[in-house]
């Protein structure tokens, strides 16, 4: 499909959690991720956007093997990994690493910056302590930190520097894919631009692929190759970033992007209001899961779940009206 090929593939991946409201209530099943098909291509930045509770973090945890899938398949470079155990699992985990949002809680306060970066290498073994030290110094250099700071503790660093430590740790095992969960949301504007620049450099120099999870749509629009939009456990639209921003086809994507705050006080664009709140993943609506809030929903949406509608070979939207117009005349601006 592409010149570079796919690195990670998810086929019909689902994750259900079993919950009960009170100690004696019957167990019910939450469909947190509900039939996701997704590929990450080699060298790309795939943005995953959606609002709280849409399942994007659960999806990231499935990819990182912090959760096991309930059903479906995950494969990495052609190898099936969702049921990997033992040696295969460790090999997979070396190749897929993560950087999380909050550099204040994701770094252990009791370890020095050097120890934090070295830990994955020590766990994986194979390096002498001198080799490890050299590698840590090299990593510090790569992410723009002074190697002389290896002995310092996380609290001695600023937010941006901490995120650099987290990134150094993330790339310490030469992964192929980095899952970035809101990597710049907690950072100030000036630091945000620096970290985004660093991520770009690393991607180019190390041939990394990124899965970027974020609710910051302006950042996602600027740095992603493709964007996937998630709603209530499913990818409802995916395509090249430029197309998703300029010409979204799913009514939810349109509403989401219309809520982006203006760049200028005079730039007042029409916002698409969504009725009500996101339904509970305990009670996913029949048919199209977005229909309860959709401004163009018709009867058909209640009974028939929209199939993956391909707008072109690279752009999919799960909406009956992604291509044709609704026949009741309701038209989205």
């Amino acid at each position: 499909m592409t010149v570079n090929g796919d690195i990670l593939q998810l086929e019909d991946v689902a994750k259900r959690f079993s919950v009960r409201r009170s100690p004696f209530a019957p167990r019910r099943s939450i469909r947190a991720v509900d039939g996701v098909n997704l590929t990450v291509r080699s060298g790309e930045t795939l943005g995953l956007v959606g609002e709280s509770g849409c399942g994007k973090s659960t999806l990231a945890r499935l990819i990182l093997k912090l959760h096991d899938v309930s059903t479906g398949r995950i494969s990495f470079l052609g190898q099936q990994v969702h049921d990997a155990r033992g040696r295969n699992l460790s090999r997979y985990r070396r190749q897929v690493q993560a950087v999380f949002q909050d550099p204040f809680s994701s770094l252990s306060p009791r370890m020095t910056a050097g120890q934090i970066v070295a830990e994955p290498m020590i766990v994986n073994g194979g390096l002498s302590s001198r080799e490890t030290d050299e590698r840590v110094a090299d990593l510090f250099d790569k992410v723009g930190l002074n190697p002389a700071w290896m002995e310092r503790y996380p609290h001695e660093f600023s937010g941006g520097q901490r995120q650099r430590i987290a990134i150094a740790r993330g790339i310490s095992l030469n992964p192929k894919l980095l899952v970035l969960d809101e990597p710049v949301s907690a950072l100030d504007l000036s630091v945000r631009a620096q970290i985004l620049n660093l991520l770009k450099d690393l991607q180019r120099n190390l041939g990394l692929s990124y899965l970027l999870i974020s609710h910051d749509l302006p950042v996602v629009s600027r740095i992603c190759t493709r964007i996937a939009v998630m709603y209530l456990g499913r990818i409802v639209e995916i395509g090249p970033a430029r197309e998703i921003v300029a010409n979204p086809r799913h009514p939810y994507t349109k509403a989401l992007f219309s809520a982006v705050l203006p760049e200028h006080p005079r730039a007042h664009h029409q916002r698409i209001e969504l009725e009500g709140e996101v339904p509970s993943p305990l009670d996913i609506p029949s048919g199209c899961r977005f229909r309860t809030r959709c401004p163009i929903a018709v009867e058909r949406c209640e009974v028939e779940p929209p199939a993956n509608l391909m707008i072109n070979s690279d752009h999919m939207a799960e909406c009956h009206f992604a291509i044709e117009k609704p026949n009741h005349g309701g038209e989205l601006k």
Partner: peptide
């Protein structure tokens, strides 16, 4: 807040 909720609140 999420973007859509933020826009409503503003």
């Amino acid at each position: 807040l999420d973007p859509t909720v933020q826009a409503q609140y503003l």
